[in-house]
């Protein structure tokens, strides 16, 4: 067993209204960042977990996302990084 650090991004599904993202985009525009087209505000989780290999650490975090960390009705998730912890 090794310890892996798995980072996961969870973001509101595209197409659904994300009022937080819209508020941030409006603020960026008012600061002069006129190139901003869309902002979505989500969560970034970093999970340390013991697993025999990186693939299984990723698999188990995907399972966590499906069962708890992301809401399948409204959010998408992606594994951002897996590294030795």
């Amino acid at each position: 067993m090794s310890r892996y650090r798995v980072a996961v991004h969870i973001v509101p599904r595209r197409g659904l209204l994300d009022p937080q993202g819209k508020a941030v985009a409006d603020a960026l525009h008012s600061l002069g960042f006129n190139g901003v087209r869309d902002v979505r505000v989500g969560r970034h989780l970093v999970i340390d977990a013991d697993a025999p290999e990186p693939q299984s650490a990723e698999r188990v975090v995907r399972d966590m996302c499906a069962k708890l960390l992301a809401n399948p009705v409204t959010e998408d998730f992606e594994i951002a990084n897996v590294e030795q912890a």
Binding site: P12, L17, P19, T74
Partner: peptide
């Protein structure tokens, strides 16, 4: 109830924030 799967859908942050 939505999170538990007893009802369909989800309740998100109010549009007004």
């Amino acid at each position: 109830a939505c999170e538990a799967g007893l009802l369909p859908g989800a309740l998100l942050r109010n549009a007004s924030l």
